[in-house]
Design a protein around this nucleic acid. Structure first.
Lengths: 187, 187
DNA sequence: GCTGTCATTTGATATAAATCAAATTGTGTT
DNA sequence: AACACAATTTGATTTATATCAAATGACAGC
């Protein structure tokens, strides 16, 4: 409870009480699957500690679609929001502590508590805006700039996450990323 | 009123009454600016007839970021949702009939009417999912496939919108698009 | 401390698409 | 119809990044 209050100070007491009822707390090791491809992934995860990624397999290749670090939400958004089987897997990238909440519970909370509804809408909106930025980066920036931008947004990510995942997230190959990093060292 | 009811059959009568109060009806010619760069673009537009695009100027180049046809919403999403000055312009692409509604009015309606709130959240969610698809297309599909996908999603768009805009939306140059179209004719 | 496996780097070549430049087609206006 | 101007096509060359292939580095388990 105290924890939730710190994480979501904008929520009212009564909302926090109901939220506490609705969430489950779990702990994981590295590389534990939270969502599998094909599932109806009606759960969202909030990362208290550790990290996770959403990814999918495209012609056998593992493509990271989303990273989440501390205080981020992560879900298999396609399945979560459109109630289709998930194209995404979600896995932890480090030993992690997570809160889990079902979509039904979220919708209930949103109906009952206006402040929760605002938060929910904000999270969706922020996700959309972040995708907007990512789209922009991929359309109009060189691989090198995208990598630097990523370092700005997630400092230290290269120490926490294998480079393959970072490369596929940036839409480049592992080799290209390696060359970019190599060039950086010299200058 | 009758019009609104047809456009939004999921909304309750009382909500439709308030919505009617909140919207303005406007008619435009081709290439009329609805939003200018730098504005605080706190308006959303619903297209009854015609079409519009959101675009921005990137190093002098005109980049289309979003198309809207009949029954689509369009807004300068960055400014609309984050209350920053808009990087986007919005202009009509054909003579159009539009509904205009302010963000404040939307927020009020969302507080007062749960059904409107659901609709609002759905629109944001759909925008996010569409961006997800677009990102995917740009990351993993050839220019040629992206063009065909666009034709599937917006049949007849090439007759309604200059190719430059379609090219920049797809993240390719006008010349490349022209070659793709040329190749298509031969096969 | 060695060994095997996975992660990363480095190298050579191929390719989709960009860029630069010019030609052609289309369109609206007096 | 003739003109100007915008939209589109076509051509030659360049470039960023992918792909294929091999070498090196790092680290977990014996």
């Amino acid at each position: 409870m105290i924890e939730l209050k710190q994480q979501f100070p904008q929520l009212s007491e009564s909302c926090l009480v109901d939220l506490k009822e609705a969430v489950n707390y779990i702990q994981t090791k590295t590389n534990e699957l939270l969502v599998r491809e094909g599932e109806y992934a009606n759960k969202a995860f909030f990362i208290l500690e550790g990290s996770a990624r959403a990814y999918y397999l495209k012609e056998g290749k593992d493509i990271t679609d989303w990273f989440a670090l501390e205080n981020d939400f992560i879900s298999a958004i396609v399945s979560f929001f459109s109630a289709e089987p998930s194209p995404h897997f979600i896995e932890t990238l480090e030993p992690s502590k997570l809160l889990v909440i079902s979509k039904d519970a979220i919708e209930e909370l949103a109906i009952k508590h206006a402040d929760f509804e605002v938060l929910y809408r904000q999270i969706i909106t922020n996700t959309m805006l972040q995708q907007q930025r990512r789209l922009n980066a991929i359309l109009f920036q060189r691989a090198e700039n995208r990598y630097h931008q990523m370092l700005d947004n997630y400092p230290g990510i290269t120490q926490r996450v294998p480079l393959t995942h970072i490369a596929s997230y940036l839409g480049i190959t592992l080799e290209t990323l390696s060359r970019i990093r190599g060039k950086l060292l010299k200058s």
